[in-house]
Write a protein that binds this DNA or RNA. Structure first.
Lengths: 220, 220
DNA sequence: TAGATTGTTAATCGATTAACAATC
DNA sequence: TAGATTGTTAATCGATTAACAATC
């Protein structure tokens, strides 16, 4: 696999660059230096230059970076130059909320359909998106050229649903269930563990003052 | 501030430990060694021991770790030994989905109220939680001992809502809006940038095959 | 040309892994 | 006691920052 040699750490920062560049573009800013951007984003200029240079030279000495160009290039790296078709597995309130998020469609992520086991939900339209029965999933994925599956089912069902979409050819999974999925190497999983995130917040907020600070093994 | 000296990296791994320990506990497992846990979680045993030892010695040589005890201790570090009261700012579909998530309440995160600017929504109950007007926010926060505010409003409104809850005494913010918040040092912000996450997935899925691999400065 | 700012190498810092003595 | 496994130190690895020569 040429799954690339660029570190996960760098990749994970790209969407944030992209976000700031989009804002600059909207504001009509034409060019920006790594120094200016670093101030805006609260990171070092060095890191910005290092990060970008992983993908080739996007800037120009003495000038900086062209906002529009850099925005487009990062967009390409992020795979936003082609549209993506999604299905959402699980038409609960989280799945429905995701279906209704306008940010996704604006960036070329089209939600084509939802799936649920609940017969009451099947056939309904949520935010304009139809809920289908799982039995239709295989065909739906092929017909609609789906490349991303969103897992928004209860954690008990998550693994079996993931196995299912995998079987139907999906290789990218956006997992919102509160469990880790066991997937083969060639499947990309991006987790959004909401409860984990909330616990991190709670942890930081508490500040673990109860920590003793000294050595632990003060045995006799 | 004794905001602690434990690295963010370590903290961010704690919820995952907690999750696995919870599962082990539910399965009735009494003890586990770092080696066994490392296999389960797909990390090194060394990392587990290093991580845990930041907080003191939770294990016992020749025995391993007592699942129940470790679970409880990590829970304390995460601040789960005390209940937390939340408000959700923004009664849109995302805010509503969060209000209805049973995982949160199960871990002691109680959603006390929602807030919205839309008069149509005010007074309604969503998943049993009342939507209030923003004008009631100040008093509500004090009366209900709120310690966490969830920002689930459109990105244009995010900063002003965050400023507002800050003014009313909140020091922990769970930000779901697709923008970074500008907050003072003593306020904890945990971001859930869904679009960023989706872009990371898309990026990994694409695999940036377009990368040239050789040196970039092949100038003449 | 002079000034600015990149691309890139070298230095530093932090995080992960390995190893092993301490000890249950 | 012997075996197992931790707690912890030392070695390695990777990521960040600093510095500067290349160059627009």
């Amino acid at each position: 696999m040429d799954k690339s040699d660029i570190s996960k750490t760098v990749i994970s920062r790209l969407p944030r660059y992209f976000r700031y560049l989009g804002d600059l573009k909207d504001k009509g800013t034409e060019r920006i230096s790594s120094g200016e951007l670093s101030q805006l984003m609260n990171v070092t200029a060095s890191q910005i230059r290092q990060d970008l240079n992983n993908f080739g030279g996007f800037g120009q000495q003495g000038y900086g970076y062209n906002v529009d160009y850099l925005y487009t290039e990062i967009g390409k790296i992020l795979g936003l130059d082609k549209p993506h078709n999604l299905i959402i597995c699980g038409a609960g309130s989280l799945g429905t909320a995701l279906a209704g998020n306008p940010d996704f469609i604006n960036r070329g992520f089209k939600i084509k359909g939802m799936f649920d086991v609940d017969p009451v939900k099947i056939g309904k339209f949520l935010h304009g998106i139809e809920v289908h029965a799982n039995s239709e999933m295989d065909e739906f994925i092929k017909e609609n050229d789906i490349d991303i599956a969103v897992i928004a089912v209860p954690k008990e069902a998550a693994q079996s649903v993931a196995d299912r979409v995998l079987e139907y050819g999906i290789r990218a999974v956006w997992n919102f269930s509160n469990t880790d999925l066991d997937m083969p190497e060639n499947v990309i999983v991006e987790n959004v563990h909401l409860l984990d995130s909330l616990m991190r917040l709670s942890c930081d907020a508490v500040g673990y003052k109860n920590k003793s600070k000294g050595k632990a093994n003060g045995k006799g």
